[in-house]
């Protein structure tokens, strides 16, 4: 017998979605647990949106199976899936007021006008837009529209909420604020969030687990620390946080065991009198809380990030590069 908790909210088995020659999603296996904040991270065109659309039901897989809470999703139209979406462009109905937008799902189900508007106002209060119900979407700012889209998608209490780069259009400050609010909301509602982003900082800070996409495939899934600290492939090492990728031929020069390695820039320390390999500072970028160096060690280049308080080196200076024994992570293949 299976208990409810062992049935994943979303399960992909060898799912593919091809558009002619384009393999938008190419054999993806995936289990998203109930109540999880799951981030899909990857560069543009890597198939994140297509994956989301497969869950929502806007696309049908070319191959493989999708299950939502253990039920086969094949042939189930979007309007019969207990899944709601916050669209990348918010997709608010321009001819309806904000309250009518939020109440839309209830209106479609035939809930009476007074009741659905009361519910809509509750949802608007939840996203801190209590007095905006009478406005038209065109009269809102980007951040406010984003909240309306969120309230509209949540009013049906979906089991899974899909968010396609919901913060992409917001400025940095608003974005950070919304990140915190979204996370808090998700915790309090206990709804499974599937969150698409190409911002690795966002994915790492918000998600319980992150799936890194590349060219229609998932290259690594894991908790943010795992993905960040222990990238499985060169692609993940580079895409998530711009790690130093050390190819096998460079490994011996840098006194590492044979194989390909990844070392995080902030794990490396610089010193005038150390034990590590000797290099020369090529460039220095001051970034406020930290400094970013490029250090040439023989023919190899390492990027190094140091905290603002540590000794600064000027370009041209000779430095020793050191790292803790557990810093290098072996890369596959």
């Amino acid at each position: 017998m299976t208990t409810p908790s062992t049935i994943p909210a979303v399960r992909f088995r060898a799912v593919a979605r091809h558009f002619g020659e384009v393999r938008a999603v190419d054999s993806v296996d995936l289990d998203i647990a109930e109540g999880e904040f799951f981030a899909m991270l990857g560069p543009s065109g890597s198939g994140k949106t297509t994956c989301l659309r497969l869950i929502a039901g806007f696309e049908q897989p070319s191959a493989g199976t999708i299950e939502i809470f253990g039920e086969h999703a094949e042939g189930v139209p979007p309007y019969r899936r207990n899944v709601n979406t916050v669209f990348q462009d918010y997709a608010l109905f321009p001819h309806m007021s904000v309250a009518e937008n939020v109440a839309y799902a209830l209106m479609v189900r035939g809930v009476g006008k007074a009741e659905r508007l009361a519910k809509a106002n509750e949802m608007l209060a939840l996203v801190k837009l209590a007095n905006f119900g009478a406005r038209k979407p065109a009269q809102l700012s980007g951040g406010q529209r984003q909240r309306v889209a969120l309230a509209r998608a949540l009013i049906n209490h979906p089991k899974v909420l899909l968010l396609d780069e919901p913060l992409g259009a917001l400025d940095l400050k608003l974005r950070e604020q919304m990140q915190v609010e979204l996370k808090t909301l998700q915790r309090s509602l206990g709804i499974t969030f599937v969150f698409v982003t190409h911002d690795q900082g966002e994915a790492l800070s918000m998600a319980d687990r992150v799936a890194v996409f590349n060219a229609g495939r998932i290259v690594q899934v894991g908790r943010p620390e795992e993905v960040y600290e222990r990238p499985a492939t060169r692609f993940v090492a580079d895409f998530v946080g711009g790690s130093n990728v050390i190819e096998p031929e460079a490994a011996t020069r840098l006194r590492l065991p044979a194989g390909a390695w990844s070392i995080r820039p902030e794990k490396i320390t610089l010193s005038a009198t150390g034990n590590g390999p000797l290099g020369r500072v090529e460039s220095l970028q001051y970034q406020g809380a930290q400094r970013r160096y490029v250090v040439a060690v023989g023919p190899d280049r390492l990027s190094v990030v140091t905290a603002a308080g540590t000794t600064a080196f000027t370009p041209g200076a000779s430095v020793h590069v050191d790292w803790p024994a557990d810093a290098p992570t072996r890369l596959e293949g």
Binding site: A56, G57, F58, P77, P78, T85, A91, V108, A153
Partner: peptide, 8 residues
Amino acid sequence: EAAGDLGA
């Protein structure tokens, strides 16, 4: 799509 997503 949003309308379909919301149950229409």
